[in-house]
């Protein structure tokens, strides 16, 4: 009489923990993010290869972040310094992040190519904006490749451009994200 419910209980616990099984969690193995500012007088480009990310394919939730001061490239060392000192203020706001959920109701546990929309909070320069960002996902052999192009308005994140550099700095910055997430 007593044994049966206990077995049932155990099997249920096992089953329920299976829902949160680790194979649905992916982390960024290699990730890069490149921004470009295409202004009339100057094109500025910089890349960080230090993108960190985590993705739960079961719940379709994700979080990405990076240290802002890891961007390299630029047209001069001084520009990089100004980027950190005057614009992104990377001492005060060391990280940029994007976390949220995938909107589409697709089964991401199987292999395939998916065009999805990610809805979440984008935090840059200490200012959080809710954004919907289109991404391309390729899932193959437990490797999730993410590709996304989107833009960020500097004004949305409280980054002001002084008048003298208006012609050298775009008000809308293009971003390109590439990441490969692997089974945790």
């Amino acid at each position: 009489m007593f044994k049966k419910p206990i077995i049932l209980l155990f099997s249920l616990i096992l089953f329920s923990s299976g829902v949160n099984a680790p194979q649905t969690m992916y982390t960024v193995g290699a990730g890069s993010i490149t921004f470009s500012s295409d202004a009339p007088l100057e094109l500025i480009k910089a890349t960080s290869n230090q993108l960190k990310g985590i993705f739960n394919s079961e719940k379709k939730e994700f979080a990405f972040t990076l240290n802002v001061n890891t961007f390299k490239g630029f047209n001069s060392p001084l520009q990089q310094e100004h980027f950190n000192e005057n614009y992104l203020e990377s001492n005060k706001y060391p990280r940029a992040s994007f976390e949220g959920k995938i909107i589409e109701d697709v089964d991401l546990k199987r292999d395939g190519f998916f065009r999805i929309r990610a809805k979440g909070n984008l935090t840059v320069h200490g200012v959080t904006q809710e954004r919907i960002i289109k991404c391309e996902l390729t899932i193959k052999n437990k490797i999730v490749s993410v590709k996304s192009n989107f833009t960020v308005l500097l004004a949305d994140h409280n980054i002001t451009i002084p008048k003298v550099v208006h012609e050298k700095l775009a008000s809308e910055i293009k971003l390109e994200v590439k990441a490969e997430l692997i089974d945790k």
Binding site: P5, S16, K52, N56, E99
Partner: peptide
């Protein structure tokens, strides 16, 4: 029992939703 389990798994999922970013930050 089902009710109990569904409760625990629910709270569990909420926890992970909040902590994805903090997990990364810790890393």
């Amino acid at each position: 029992l089902f009710y109990l389990l569904s409760c625990t798994s629910k709270s569990f999922s909420q926890d992970t939703a909040v902590s994805l970013l903090s997990m990364l930050e810790k890393e």
